[in-house]
Design a protein around this nucleic acid. Structure first.
Lengths: 199, 199
DNA sequence: GTCCACATGTAACTGGTTACATGATTGG
DNA sequence: CCAATCATGTAACCAGTTACATGTGGAC
């Protein structure tokens, strides 16, 4: 149930139209909760139906015409309620770990390249976040809002740091492995080596 | 598309019935990819239909009777293909960050308690993983399989370490905030401009 | 014979993704 | 007028979750 509340937050920060929200979800908010415009429009419709937001007075009817929303008191209340309500932490789920466990059975061939690619991507993200931190959270920027948003950014930085370290570690581990991977003994490799893209 | 491949991996490690798989997904595999029995049965049906697995010969017809599966060569091939094929890293998405950003607008009241609760949960997980590491990956356990599975466990340990540190950091940050109150006052409802749209 | 644990499934719903459809505005 | 771009939306699908249904076999 995070998306509607992310939208409420964004609209409280600044009333916006669907497309403007989409852009903000590509920038700042999207760093920790991404959403496509289809999701956003659908959610805006629901939120309006529930009386949490409303279209700004200048509302013209329909398609092709910009339509901005603002949060109603009920929406702010709901957001405050949700924010303080207990929620369970979500388990860490990542396909990479499944692939690693699979590699322990069918061999590591090919996986290494993708790990290296991921490492590059995470290094890039980390650098990007570093830039943002320098630009937006220098000395003097320590209002309550600043500090809370800085905390979120720090999480991003720490997580990307984790990934880069873990991936480097995994790659050096790979180098010490018997080449091409592990016990494939006894089962035919059955051809298709080059990684042709089926289904 | 991870679940079917996690199941193929599990079945290669050891042919199993649906319920046995469910148990294994509660234990070791579930640490990095959880699944309910409903998901597993549905997926087993699909995998059988695609010719990736088959029911073991002792197959008796239907409900209430145990039915074990083994992986066919096509299944092993598909697993190897998927494991080595490039995939995009998934973005870090967590409701806590949405809540924190919301708290910057509607106030931090109540959130602090849940952060403390999360901290306890993550500390517990961390301790649990530490136990597993001591028990299952002591000296001498360094076959290729061991090392790959150890890598996965290390990821879990590092991620839980991240969470405990970040949450502690967040909590001390909270103490320095203008008391838990709804800092509505700070945010102009429509003005935008100022601090709203960074990072 | 009843109850409980084992075991396999169905159905309905939610949230997210992908592909596509349609109208309005503006610059050439 | 035409194309590009801004803007809002529909439809179909997929993975994961929750609730419920059904059958078997052993313990008492």
């Amino acid at each position: 149930m995070s998306l509607p509340h992310a939208i409420l937050t964004a609209l409280l920060e600044k009333p916006s139209s669907g497309l403007e929200l989409t852009r903000r979800f590509d920038r700042s908010i999207g760093y920790f909760w991404s959403a496509t415009h289809q999701q956003i429009y659908r959610e805006l419709g629901k939120l309006e139906g529930e009386g949490y937001i409303r279209a700004l007075p200048a509302e013209r009817p329909a398609r092709g015409q910009k339509k901005s929303y603002e949060v109603l008191p009920a929406g702010r209340e709901e957001l405050a309620r949700w924010t303080s309500a207990p929620q369970e932490p979500r388990p860490w789920r990542d396909a990479l770990f499944v692939r690693l466990r699979a590699a322990a059975v069918v061999g590591t061939t090919g996986l290494e390249d993708d790990l290296r690619r991921h490492l590059t991507l995470h290094e890039r993200k980390l650098a990007e976040y570093g830039e943002i931190e320098k630009r937006d959270f220098g000395p003097g920027r320590d209002s309550a809002q600043d500090r809370l948003q800085h905390l979120i950014l720090r999480a991003g930085i720490d997580l990307e740091t984790f990934w880069t370290q873990w991936l480097r570690n995994a790659l050096t581990e790979f180098e010490r492995l018997p080449d091409g991977g592990t016990s494939d003994a006894g089962v035919p490799d059955a051809g298709g080596g080059a990684g042709a893209e089926r289904a």
